[in-house]
Write a protein that binds this DNA or RNA. Sequence first.
DNA 1: GTTTAGGGTTAG
Length: 772
Amino acid sequence: MPLELKRSLQELKTSLPKHLRRVGLKHFQLGGEYTNKYFQGVVVLSYPLTRLGNGKAFFKIVLQESENSYFRPDTINILLFGRLAEDCEKVVHQEDTVVIAGFNVTKSASKDGRHCCQLEVPDEAGSSVFISSKSRTTATSETATISVAPKYIYTPLNHLKGGTVVNLYGVVKFFKPPYVSKGTDYCSVVTIVDQSDTKLVCTLFNENRDALPKIYKNGDIVRFHRIKVQEFNGQFQGVTSNGFAALTFDSTVGAPVVPRTTSKLFTFTDEDKKTVENLRVWVARNFSNSAPAADLSSIQPQMFFDLTCQLVGKAKVDGSSYLLKVWDGTKCPFPSWKVLIKEDDLEGDGVLINQLKNLSVDVIVYDNHVQLAKSLKVGNFIRMYSLHAKSQSPEDKPDVSYIQFHLHGGTGYGRGITVLPENHPDVKELKVFLDSQATRGYADSENSSSQEPEHSYLTLGSCLEEYQQLSVTVLTDHQHFDVTTVNTILNSRVPQQYRIRAKLRRFEPKKLHQSVKLLCPQCNSLQEVPDVSEFDALLQASSKHPNPNLQNIPFCQSVVWDIENQGRRYVAIHFVTRYELLQEPEDSLIMIEGGTVPEILRLSKKFKGIIPVRSIEDNLVSLDLSAPFFWQGNIQYYGCRRCSDPKAMPSLHALAAQQNALWESTTIAEALGIVLLQYVFVMKFTLDDGTGTLDAYLVDSEKFFQIPASEILTSYIFQDNMERIMNKLCPTGTNPDDFPSLECFIKSYYVRDGTEEQLSFQIFDTTIAEDV
DNA sequence: GTTTAGGGTTAG
């Protein structure tokens, strides 16, 4: 039984459950409703503890409502039972102030001049006795709470009824962090869902922001007590009712089950723990983590995202907007808009703000968010939800763009700000990272401090200058690497990885189609992409005489066409079935014997995929691997002649028997024992950083250009994009000094050239910036 | 013992 000590009557009062309302003696009557009521009085008399006939403990006290009351009677009998009686008997003394809740009002059994009703406090869930002693000075026993933990029943979301007050568990599917409503309260809208897959939108109000659930992300688990269910627009909604209380839990499976709440008084049983743990498992299985969280280094223009960051400065902009300067330790890959404000208006450590100016970004928050933004403290760790990274161009320079960060007005899509507590795991992690970045940041500014302008804030003009030096490539990993000069790299003979910043002087080959090759991921051999028109002879050589015995392949339905009606050329088509059923053509895999390249190309527009085959004895096998073994849409897939160990077509049987097997090049190649060749761009970049030049190879299937090498030869759009990118990296007719910079990772490795080993370089983990 | 908002991007 919980026993809580209080230091004063004041503390006792503030710790009483908020849903309890005081009720006076004169309101007691038989048959009244006292569920959420408490009675307070001073002990004027207490009787010795006795046992009832059933052995249950019984303790009686008399409480006086007020010493100076005009009203008579002003005392009432209180009857306590069971464990509650035993515990109270130990601590209750005359003159103590006692608050009782969870009682029944019955007719007084004795004619003693006291109130005609008596209060029975059963040894049951929900019964509580709060005791505050008047004058004893021993510190530990001044006040006490004695209560029987209420037994809460939780209603599954698919069992809700309108007009009821219930207790709920749920997983947050959507939420608006608490914001200032137009009324008197904070508001938070929370959509929850539970294992019944039923959704409930809850609209929660409280004048105290901390009383609303402390939700930090979708997937968090909440427990709501005393929430009212009502119908709105034909659907149930949850709204706060008297005594609403919320607990919030992180949903990480295995993490300690610690509720987030500011309430000191709440029940939390082993059963609650189990419920949370079960919900965690459910979340792990059923919630895809599609949260739009991002750090500054991974933002894309026009995206809305959640940013976890630290506030380094803030300033008033005008009546409806407010500036927050924040950082998360990563660098925004685009030039970002800096707001010009008066230095006097800026709150925060000027030196620090200056040191972090290349890492921090300016966020403008609007309208309803201004009030909350003002209340933030510099140094706070905050999360902003649905922040807009808006791409803008100055009017006179449409080819230049920069990012503005807006937290627009309104609360749609959960737009808002929360302060994260210092002990939040994400904050702990961020602190460590920020510390490491700050150290680097200080070093940078020390080197260049002599050239620093006096004022700390970049105007738009200087932001554009910065753009000139921005890299047209983005590093996708290892951002902590420092830049190494080409000169240093050339003098090193040890294979290793570097980050460099240089300009692209030249590249080869000049003709795009010459840069696409086929790479074997196993033996690393490269080969040219053959011209498919050369395969007609090979394709047709296979089937002058389709074998009629083959028309009964277990997982195929076959037809033979006499193409030229002269018996001179036959084409056999074997439709791969699933469970002996044909599928829709666009889902079907077919095998073809005979057929010309144009015929196969035409068929591959209609069918999911095509495997050219020939028959050997009574089996079907792939053609020679110099021809594509699989055709899909416009793409032909080749196998490595050195590494593959081709198997006959019945090897596809297992794949055909799988319920949802996709007819993809990778799975088919695997089933047929073929090592799939990868389409790659192979290019040589000559990079110059002023200290020297080096040739680095790019071998890339689609990461660097964000264009699939397999599709570029058949797509004019991709070819246009590619040309545009290369012209941006290495513009023709431009002074090479004005070329943009490329930031790349390169690794050095040895290649044997005859008897000599030569150091070569290859680009990796680098990609073209989105705005290029 | 009311009102607020009642999920579904600003338009700066």
